[in-house]
Design a protein around this nucleic acid. Structure first.
Lengths: 352, 352
DNA sequence: CCCTATAAATGGAACGTTCCAATAAATCAA
DNA sequence: TTGATTTATTGGAACGTTCCATTTATAGGG
């Protein structure tokens, strides 16, 4: 039962007693074929165990219905959610997207991109890896392959971006913290080479300035965007002479790390130190205590990105508008008021 | 800057003043070409912005260096880890695997499989969706495409399987619980249509029997294999006249749900009710309390699966040995002794 | 009954590679 | 010098589709 030479369109033709062109027409669901003939052909297709050779077809057609999704960290549930959103819309368009992981490695990303191009993808949705060089996508551009960036953007590049309103989200979070009476705030995690980082930090800073927090009372600690990074950030912060009483974290993973580290020191997240996350991954709600986080509607952004992609392909353009998704702060239990401020300004809300 | 007709091997040939065959040889890194000629060609390749057309090449070569990974639930970090393991070994073999998600939907799986076959994959690593029909992979078999199942197996099928020793893992976990003094045990989550379920439940049952737990003291509650499923299972169990005091959960997600539900009822996981998970995802360690779980070395299994796949492709066979991975119980804080048994048999270990 | 219009089916060139067989150029032995 | 051998390069057929231009069959109009 070794692999006999695979059946082609000609085998079908012979089997059904028609020409290869007729078979091709049937395969494409053309209405030009008499129903009975089509039936005969379809039966033959079954009989010979035919599998369509898309490679051969693309050789003539030059556009391939394959869409690639290049993701920088598959183990972050955040990106999995993004992927799921996209898949929803591609599925209903009869497209199976292929996902590839770059593991936050620009070299790997290069390989992945190359491979996808060789495959002749119709379009690419990419969340670029950290440290992507500006030229990394030129190849794609000159080849005229539509690309959209999801969640992350590159400094210069004119590739359309689908991302949440990072600035606003961070502003909201910081304002919430300040409203709770906190006066010494921190921003934990992330590194300045990410545009997202700058946006989020920018929003945070603006809130602090506007709402009267002195420059020297805001602490910024860069770090890995992971649980481990969060742990490290907290350690650093608490070692300061006048440590902050609340922190906005670059993302939820960092926030989880911070909560963990607090617990390890016998501090209660929320009561002893307020923490806010960013992204609002599903686990945020289920954490203990539940994490206050900036919700960005990840799956929704995924859908959006997919729609934009589809439209670009259809109108065979390589340009599209950016889309900045709405965000909102989901208040849960991880940020009570500043303890030391309890007897001062805003005195409500601490019922239980 | 519209997309001009893309460059082919002939354009390169013209540019470099050689024949297309020479270019082809250079592309394949053949040693038959004079270094200076190769250099000239490579320069031309750069100049014309050439991108290799793998589809056209495969038309002649008939084997495609594309490997697909079909995963049933991308949002489960467990599978993301599996994917990462595989990618490690494929990367070093110069292969970019394409991942596709079936979202636990057999119909979707069918589409995904079809699409991958049309793409001419060299091999497939699959974690089949629940409810996969026995015939779903026949197409692949008759086409002679190597397939390996990862983590899950299908009832009949002779496709090789890479999976952890589910039976043993469950046995270990149950034995641990019994050793802690628990006498009324439960198995939470999962449904009988999964082979994995039967294996895990089997191990659990065997431990109970061997170690003298009466049949009527073991409770089995089926349910979704998610946090939500875990919550539901616990509710059901506690509503029983004589509820269990400990549970082995089908996987970590279920265990997290159980812990959550316990907390909601004011019970402390570990102290008031013991819970053990399965898979030992990274979060298990970081939970509060840290979850005792059966570690299956997910990434390792992924690597293994990838190696087996590579070997199958190389030896152009469609058969391979099953591989059952070692497991071990990682004891953390989520399962203390049975409270009511505290003054009876094993009296140590409860220091703090 | 012939002509035209419509419907259904078909042959052949083209797509961008690979690879075999063949050629051309360079080297060597005699 | 000549033929044999090695080293580099090349033309052309083939891979499995699509699609245009034709052909053939069927129907309709006068």
């Amino acid at each position: 039962m070794a692999s006999r030479p695979k059946a082609t369109i000609l085998d079908i033709a012979r089997e059904a007693g028609v020409s290869k062109s007729t078979v091709s027409l049937v395969l494409q669901g053309s209405g030009l074929i008499r129903p009975e003939t089509a039936l005969k052909v379809r039966k033959a297709i079954e009989d010979v165990g035919y599998v369509y050779n898309r490679g051969a077809a693309n050789l003539r057609k030059a556009h391939s219905n394959v869409i690639g999704m290049v993701i920088n960290d598959l183990t972050n549930p955040f990106f999995a959610e993004l992927a799921v959103g996209m898949e929803r819309v591609f599925q209903s368009a009869g497209i199976v997207p292929f996902i590839a992981n770059t593991a936050e490695n620009p070299v790997r990303q290069e390989e992945v991109l190359k491979s996808l191009m060789e495959q002749g993808v119709a379009g690419l949705i990419v969340s670029p890896a950290r440290g992507t060089t500006p030229g990394a996508f030129r190849r794609l551009e000159t080849a005229g392959v539509p690309v959209v960036f999801a969640m992350r953007r590159l400094p210069d590049s004119r590739i359309p971006v689908i991302a949440p309103d990072n600035h606003r989200g961070a502003y909201l979070a910081a304002a919430h913290l300040i409203g709770k009476g906190h006066r010494r705030l921190a921003f934990f995690g992330g590194t300045a080479d990410l545009v997202v980082y700058q946006e989020r930090l920018g929003g945070f800073r603006e809130a602090c300035e506007t709402l009267g927090i002195a420059r020297r009372d805001v602490l910024v600690v860069e770090g890995e965007t992971s649980r481990r990074g969060g742990i490290a950030c907290l350690e650093t912060a608490l070692a300061m002479p006048e440590p902050p009483t609340a922190a906005l974290c670059f993302n939820d993973a960092v926030a989880f790390g911070v909560m963990l580290a607090l617990r390890k020191r016998g501090l209660e997240p929320g009561a002893d130190f307020a923490v806010v996350g960013f992204d609002d991954v599903v686990e945020a709600e289920h954490y203990m205590p539940a994490l206050t986080s900036v919700s960005v509607d990840t799956a929704g952004l995924g859908e959006r990105a997919a729609h934009v992609m589809l439209k670009m392909i259809q109108s065979r353009t390589t340009r599209a508008e950016d889309h900045i998704g709405a965000v909102n702060l989901v208040v849960r239990e991880s940020c009570g008021p500043d303890r030391r401020a309890r007897n001062t300004p805003a005195g409500m809300g601490d019922a239980a």
